[in-house]
Amino acid sequence: MPAHPQHTPSGSPDGDSTARVVLDAGDIQRALTRISHEILERNKGADDLVLLGIPSRGVPLAERIAERIASVEGYAVPVGSLDVTMYRDDLRMKPARALLPTSIPPGGIDGKVVVLVDDVLFSGRTIRAALDALNDIGRPQAVRLAVLVDRGHRELPIRADFVGKNLPTSLIERVRVTLAGIDEVDAVTIQGLAPEGGAA
């Protein structure tokens, strides 16, 4: 399933001649600032919020959103990470994969408003897996979804509440998000190449 080509490790986004930068560092910052305000507006403040990033690139995004909320509201929103590897529906179609960190903030998620944060929303299967994973951890009052990029092509009835940029793409294109901290620079790029091994 080609849901997450952006997790493929690769060099700098500028290295590939067919890669096109659609969001640069400034665009990403502005998008995250807007998302942070939208979360606060929707939640009527920062009370009871818990941000859970989906590894690997959802986690730094969640941390950045939490920083912005802290600077606006002066309240440190709990941030954690939620690995969905064991809940994926394609677990048995690929070799067993290494697990990524899950860390639930000390207050737990019972009765909280959980905002899942991921980099790219594509088929929706990762989010389905995340909802199942949350089910085993607690019972939030509500679950919302924030993504940096929504590239369409949903295969499940899932939508994002907060979107950095809607990016209409073709299925043969690849969207890659790089974030300083994990990668060299902040950028969202599109490559027009056919995916490796014809995965689409």
């Binding site: 064991m86 677990l91 179609m93 690929k94 070799p95 067993a96 994969r97």
Partner: peptide, 11 residues
């Protein structure tokens, strides 16, 4: 057990 049985082929 996860690494041997979890995927299509063991890790």
């Amino acid at each position: 057990l996860y690494l041997l049985l979890g995927g299509s082929t063991p890790a």
